[in-house]
Design a protein around this nucleic acid. Sequence first.
RNA 1: GUGCCCGUAGCUCAACCGGAUAGAGCACCAGCCUUCUAAGCUGGGGGUUGCUGGUUCGAUUCCAGUCGGGCACACCA
Length: 558
Amino acid sequence: MSVVLNFKTQLHEIFTHALRDFAPDQLNATINIERTKQSSHGDYSCNLAMQLAKPMRKSPREIANGIIARMPQSGVVEKVEVAGAGFINVFITTVAKQSVVKGVLQSGNNYGCLQVGNGRKVGVEFVSANPTGPLHVGHGRGAAVGDCLCNVLKTAGWDVTREFYYNDAGAQIDNLTLSVQLRCKGITPDDPSWPESGYRGNYIIDVARSYMAKDRVESDDQHITGKGDVDDAEAIRHFAVAYLRREQDLDLQAFQVKFDVFSLESTLYTEGKVEETVNKLIASGHTYQQDDALWLRTTDFGDDKDRVMRKSDGGYTYFVPDVAYHLDKWRRGFERVINEQGSDHHSTITRVRAGLQALSAGIPKNWPDYVLHQMVTVLKNGEEVKISKRAGSYVTLRDLIDEVGCDATRYFLAARHPDSQLVFDIDLAKSQSNDNPVYYIQYAHARICTVLLQWGGNNAALLKAETEVLNSEYETKLLQCLIDFPQVIEVAAEELAPHLIAFYLKELAADFHSYYNATRFLVEDEKIKLARLALIAAIAQVLKNGLAILGVSAPEKM
RNA sequence: GUGCCCGUAGCUCAACCGGAUAGAGCACCAGCCUUCUAAGCUGGGGGUUGCUGGUUCGAUUCCAGUCGGGCACACCA
């Protein structure tokens, strides 16, 4: 079904044929076929003639006409025109477009699913917040973008594993442990003995209280009972980590995000993976000893300066377990790995890749991939809220979900290009929640469901609809929009840009709302009624599929 | 000072990785509910794509420079 509807692919073949006849020596030219912006330009256009103008030393229009004359017959092509500077514009037959309706209805939840991933394994690591406090808005952006990206890749045919990596040892966890211990002893951040680097947030009190009460804590990957012993720092550390992991799990659960794998930094040490990686790096000849420290010559792989691996105090710097962790990912069979992180960590990219290259383990040069999202600034009462875990002034993800709702929060955080900075105005999101674009899309879905409910017929009857009566301007536009959906998935997966789904859905919803206002569906004429209902049922299906990718619900009434 | 990201309508953002007249939403103005949900629709005003050069048939997109915002530049993570 999708083969029939993939006009772009079909046109690509047609143009390749024509080019082979017309200019066999130009076969290496890339045939670029894109959707037109104006309907007067047809449905698809090709710029091949303009590209060939220079090498062939002929006018683009002359070339265009030559190519068109050699295009093989096709049932989907209505007509072909030369326009503008030499564009070849292709018009698709209405009958071919109309077939999308039944294609969508038959495919159902699978409409939009592609084979481009071909079942290959891809590991997507995102959020990866250390268990030192609740998740904040920045993590929320990572969660929304990462989760949507996973959904996009899965739809495109990849075998996706969602992974969360966190550090349960090291300096920050030591700070956390000490902070909880002090709270257990009743010492507050006001006290002069409170360390500068201690965590001051009130949630530390909750951790301390729970530990002293010998509570049982179960997170997605940790189970522990508080010991209640103020002097046992190890017990406090384990408890605090598990407690805050559980808090994060609750945040993620409220945000509809689930992970397949949790990886702990400490495991890399206990399983000897860090040691093994260090030994391999030393054996590679890319390390040297200087100033009592062990260095990796990352400048061999494009870094601007070399990096310390083993500090003079004998401990490893953070990027060593990072390299060990990614080697582990590679060994687990992920030929592709995507790390979604805040852009403040972008400097790790070069280091991790350099470490992996130094291992000579056959890992590709630009492995893994990274998607970095820019900072989120939060406005409340017109003022910027500074996010500081240690100071305790904080906008948590849970606050946001409680105030704005899960659907709207996810949409807001995922509907923008990750590269651009994001201002999240809480008051705006709260007070104008009805104006959120997400409701606009959901409303379109709910409206269709209501119409279908009032019709009360059997959905199987829609498959027998005679779609050739769908030829109004509104209908033609909607048909093309439905046809575009798989392509949007493909591009979003290719560019790792889940926000494209959000924009597509807004457009589809807009086209539907216009259609709704201009058209009556439950009309006397049975043939017209069935065809229109089939069309809007297909629209509802695509809206639902797209919203599912965003992780947003598709309500049947609002 | 060095590297990375961003700069598009008053505001928030798109633009299918070089294409045709740069598009939506919010806000503003004027209309549309005795008909399937007005959380909607129709029309209108609003732009030197930060700035200056360059590359070519063609630049918001690529290159150089420049200005502005953000992030990163540890033997922290």
